[in-house]
């Protein structure tokens, strides 16, 4: 019988991704309901030493697949490894981060394992029978749907990064590390990685910033935002409009098709606040919005809303700091 809550723990360049720890956090909550275990699947090359960190964040078991073919993410290699683990252990649930890796791998696996998959969940709950209730936004965040997968196991879901909370790290926590050996069918490795280049503009991860200065269409020039952000000890984020216009990089985009952030302070300058944008930032602790249009939807979620010219306000803040 299917049992235990599994988490696909994403790493890049040997670094565990924040979303992996967040998923272990939510998996712990789900596991409490049914008395099951939280099992982490850690795939990569030379990453076995990261297993202890996963235990410290709440995993009961860490299953490590360490193989040279997993050094860089390629769908088929990773799909074979997770499939092997899923067949061996029959998980009740497998969670993935809704990242460009999780959203590539999870649907491939759902078809391979012939089970359901719910994308981009923002809330997960479990009943005593082990049924997972997966809530996700649809229609650009206008609607929320709760999805179940009653007759198939594993129940699979990708979960938005930044939405779930990781537990406090506790290095005294005990857990079991199992090193798995997998027989890969290398004949199926049809995609070759020729090159991998880190994008420079993405050096800052806005999901981890405590304060964000977010720029929208209402700003003609985004340079002052970088100065202000630096002085405030934060980072610069962007609405989709400026990404589409080629002014900001995609990795700074907040919203439905960008990132979900919840910094302690979110300062929105010249952002009108389409529902897709609000979906990515409304959980921020304290929201300040500056916009010339007093009917802009951003004011619906702002703690402090100011009707004024965003660029001029930005300039004045720069003077004050």
């Amino acid at each position: 019988m299917a049992k235990n809550i599994w988490v696909f723990c994403e790493q890049r360049d040997g670094q565990l991704q924040s979303v992996a720890l967040e998923l272990i956090g939510v998996a712990r909550e789900l596991a409490e309901k049914t008395g099951e275990k939280v099992c982490a699947a850690l795939l990569g090359h030379k990453i076995t030493d990261k297993a202890a960190e996963l235990v410290a964040y709440g995993a009961d078991e860490v299953h490590v697949v360490d193989d040279a073919c997993l050094e860089k993410f390629v769908t088929e290699q990773y799909a074979q490894a997770v499939t092997a683990l899923a067949k061996k252990y029959e998980p009740s649930v497998i969670l993935f981060g809704a990242t460009s890796i999780g959203r590539d791998l999870a649907p491939r696996l759902s078809a391979r394992l012939k089970t359901g998959l719910t994308a981009d969940c923002t809330k997960l709950e479990m009943d005593e029978e082990g049924n997972l209730f997966m809530t996700r936004p649809a229609f650009g965040g206008n609607l929320f749907a709760t999805i179940i997968c009653p007759d198939h196991r594993p129940q699979m879901s990708t979960v938005r990064p930044g939405v779930m909370k990781k537990l406090e790290r506790d290095d005294a926590r005990q857990g079991e590390v199992v090193v798995e050996s997998i027989e890969f069918d290398t004949a199926k490795f049809a995609v070759k990685v020729v090159d991998e280049v880190r994008s420079i503009q993405c050096a800052v991860n806005i999901e981890e910033a405590k304060l964000l200065v977010a720029c929208g269409r209402g700003l003609k020039d985004v340079k002052p935002a970088y100065t202000v952000a630096e002085k405030l000890g934060g980072s610069v984020a962007s609405s989709r409009a400026l990404v589409d216009a080629g002014i900001m990089d995609h990795c700074s985009q907040v919203g439905q098709t960008g990132k979900t952030v919840r910094p302690e302070a979110y300062l929105a300058f010249g952002i009108s606040g389409a529902i897709q944008h609000l979906a990515g930032m409304e959980e921020s602790e304290y929201i300040v919005a500056v916009n010339t249009d007093k009917n802009a939807p951003i004011f619906k979620v702002a703690n402090l809303g100011i009707v004024s010219d965003a660029a001029a306000v930005m300039k004045n803040i720069e003077k004050l700091l």
């Binding site: 012939k114 929320f144 702002a302 703690n303 809303g305 009707v307 306000v313 300039k315």
Partner: peptide, 30 residues
């Protein structure tokens, strides 16, 4: 395999304070 159990629309419940200010006062307020 997946079924829609229920749907809901979005609710906003923030305390909202929106004021019209000149840029200088706005900057100081923020």
């Amino acid at each position: 395999p997946t079924k829609v159990k229920s749907t809901a629309t979005k609710q906003f419940d923030k305390t909202i304070e929106t004021v019209e200010l000149d840029p200088e006062t706005a900057a100081k307020t923020i």
